[in-house]
């Protein structure tokens, strides 16, 4: 080796060695930072940990402690303890977002803070710059093909006379119940400001409804055990049932489908806003986006390529995405108290 080349290589190696700690420190910019986040439990949390939190920790040193809980209770806690949050990141669904925005307990952010938000599909960010939607769960009609001979084709089919004592749907205490009611209303000429047609279908479905599930797990169990043979359920969970051997078929109504987006929110006055935004950014990256489709088949919210998961994900093409009905959550949730009362009246008879 020539003397000149030796000197060049030697000085480069020395410079690299000297710069390494600085580069490492820059990469692990959140070393020592620990954030608190709520979880949905089970597979959902494991997926987020594997596809979002672990890779981020390896790169930046950021630790996120996930505690499975009831997100509605977390929302109540955040609102009642404004300024002293018990979480730094809050995962919650569309129905609860209007309350969070109104109470001013979550931060707004745009493409400047999280560039990946530019990749979100049009119309999916339903609350301006509040929260990042990262997964879509869709309510669809389902039926057991062993016991229900005529397939369901639309939401209102839960009122079909041949389904007496066979239907399960969401408990009135759950956000999806309101969305299902809106679906029943819009399918029959109603709207978010005219829910009456939906209540009429619910009234007709009353003899059919064997139970109102108070949780997703309960509905899953009722369909698995054969206590119910038809109903309205989450697309991903129905697929989970089918894969585990229960002959549950899913239906995509031609007139459109109703989805709830799950949002990741950066809580105001949290421990470290920059670190929380890094979690959101990782969540909206291709690696983060493909997590839930890979395990629960819930649809992603960005332009990420689905690849091998495409056949089993409901929103797997622009045509399917076009089927997603827009929902005015603020208008729907403003009426929730009255609507839940009406639903209870109808179901109580």
């Amino acid at each position: 080796m020539e003397r000149r080349a030796f000197l060049r290589i030697g000085s480069l190696a020395a410079a690299s060695a000297l710069a390494a700690p600085a580069v490492h420190a820059q990469q692990r910019q959140f070393a020592g930072v620990t954030l608190r986040m709520n979880g949905y439990g089970g597979t959902y949390d494991r997926t987020l940990t594997d596809h979002v939190l672990k890779p981020l920790e390896e790169r930046t040193g950021l630790k996120v402690i996930v505690t499975a809980s009831n997100s509605a209770a977390d929302v109540v806690r955040l609102i009642s303890n404004s300024g002293r949050p018990h979480l730094d990141l809050l995962m919650t669904d569309s129905p609860l977002m209007p309350d969070l925005v109104r109470a001013n307990v979550i931060e707004a952010f745009g493409t400047a803070e999280v560039p990946n938000t530019a990749r979100l599909l049009p119309g999916l960010r339903e609350f301006g710059e509040h929260g990042a939607p990262f997964s879509l769960a869709t309510i669809i009609p389902v039926f057991n093909s062993d016991t229900v001979r005529t397939p369901l084709t639309r939401y209102s089919d839960i009122a079909r006379p041949d389904l007496r004592g066979k239907v399960v749907t969401f408990g009135t205490n759950l956000g999806p119940a309101l969305l299902a009611l809106l679906a029943l209303a819009e399918e029959n000429g109603g709207s978010v400001t005219n829910i009456a047609p939906g209540l009429r279908v619910l009234s007709a479905a009353r003899p059919n409804i064997v139970s109102l599930a108070s949780s997703t797990v309960q509905e899953l169990q009722l369909l698995r055990q054969g206590e119910a043979q038809a109903g309205l359920f989450w697309d991903g969970r129905a697929l989970e049932l089918r894969k585990s051997g229960t002959p549950i078929q899913t239906v995509v109504p031609e007139t459109g489908v109703y989805s709830i987006a799950t949002y990741m929110n950066v809580v105001r006055d949290g421990r470290n806003k920059e670190a929380a935004l890094a979690v959101v950014s990782q969540l909206l990256s291709d690696e983060g986006m493909l997590g839930l489709p890979s395990t629960l088949r819930y649809a992603p919210t960005t332009d990420v390529a689905l690849g091998e998961y495409a056949p089993e994900v409901l929103f797997n093409s622009p045509e399917r995405v076009a089927l997603k009905k827009p929902v005015d959550w603020v208008a729907l949730m403003t009426q929730r108290s009255a609507l839940i009362e009406e639903m209870n009246k109808v179901l109580q008879g």
Binding site: A73, N173, L174, V210, S211, Q348
Partner: peptide, 25 residues
């Protein structure tokens, strides 16, 4: 009542729970 009672069995505790945690009224 929620898990065992089905669609037509309501008790006031459940409705209170709904008002506080679901409708936030």
């Amino acid at each position: 009542p929620r898990l065992i009672g089905g669609a037509r069995t309501q008790m006031l505790g459940g409705l209170i729970f709904d008002e506080v945690l679901t409708t936030m009224n």
